[in-house]
Computed example of a mutant assay.
Amino acid sequence: MKNPTDFWETVLEPDEKLLWTGQPKPRLHWRNWRLYGPAPMAAAGLFLAGGFIIATQGKDNDVWLLLLPALLVLIPAWATWRQLKAFAATRYALTDKRALMFRIEGQKTRVKAIPRETITAPNLRNTMPASVTFLLPEAKKKTEIGFEFVEHTDALLPHLEARV
């Protein structure tokens, strides 16, 4: 396997030093509820739709009810699979100058670079594995920005805390 720092060599500036690299590795766990996105709400809607069909149609149209169990499983599974696929294509790095988030989505590559001067005190979130947020949200966004579901946060935190 290639050295993780090789991935970043083309992205780093000539005088930039790589301090930490990581990749999200979320686990299916109740603490990681954000992985499931809107899927639980969709499943609840399907459940209510099933109740509505039973209440209004009786047992005459119970063929529709055969679809509901499949949809109650497929919709959340599909949403979670998409989210896990996106995390598999994501890489994180912390350098002496910036925090980098790199994601390959099909033919597109998205890179977010956050200058070290804008990084705030890190906040460790209780996910599996832990997530570290270190940038306050922008006016339009409600969530903090950071490295999500990263293992070995004990190696990352000293680098973040040293610069704040």
Rank of each mutant, 00 (worst) to 15 (best):
R98A: 13
Y92N: 05
M1V: 12
M41A: 06
L35D: 02
A88S: 15
L94A: 12
F134V: 14
R31N: 03
V132Q: 11
E9M: 10
A43I: 01
T109N: 09
F7E: 07
L35G: 00
F87D: 03
Q57P: 00
T21G: 03
R163H: 03
I54W: 09
P158A: 08
G45D: 00
W33S: 06
M1T: 12
A79E: 05
E117H: 14
A113C: 10
Q57Y: 08
L71E: 05
V11L: 11
T95E: 02
L74H: 00
A42M: 03
I145Y: 12
V132L: 13
A121I: 06
T133F: 05
G50Q: 08
A55H: 08
G106Y: 07
A139V: 15
D15P: 02
H152G: 14
R82A: 05
P137L: 12
E9G: 06
G45A: 10
L100K: 09
T10Q: 10
T127C: 02
Q107T: 13
P158W: 06
L12M: 11
A42H: 01
D154F: 11
W64H: 07
L48E: 01
K17V: 11
P122L: 07
G146K: 04
W30V: 00
G45K: 00
D62P: 00
A155D: 09
P122W: 04
T95Q: 03
K85F: 07
P115N: 12
L136P: 01
V63R: 06
K141E: 14
H152E: 14
L124C: 10
W30T: 01
D15V: 06
K17C: 02
L100P: 11
H29G: 05
L12P: 09
L156G: 07
K140V: 13
P115Y: 09
A99Y: 10
P40R: 00
W64N: 06
K108N: 06
A43R: 01
H152C: 09
E138V: 15
L136W: 05
L12R: 10
G51T: 04
L124H: 07
D6S: 13
A113E: 15
D15C: 04
A55S: 12
W30I: 01
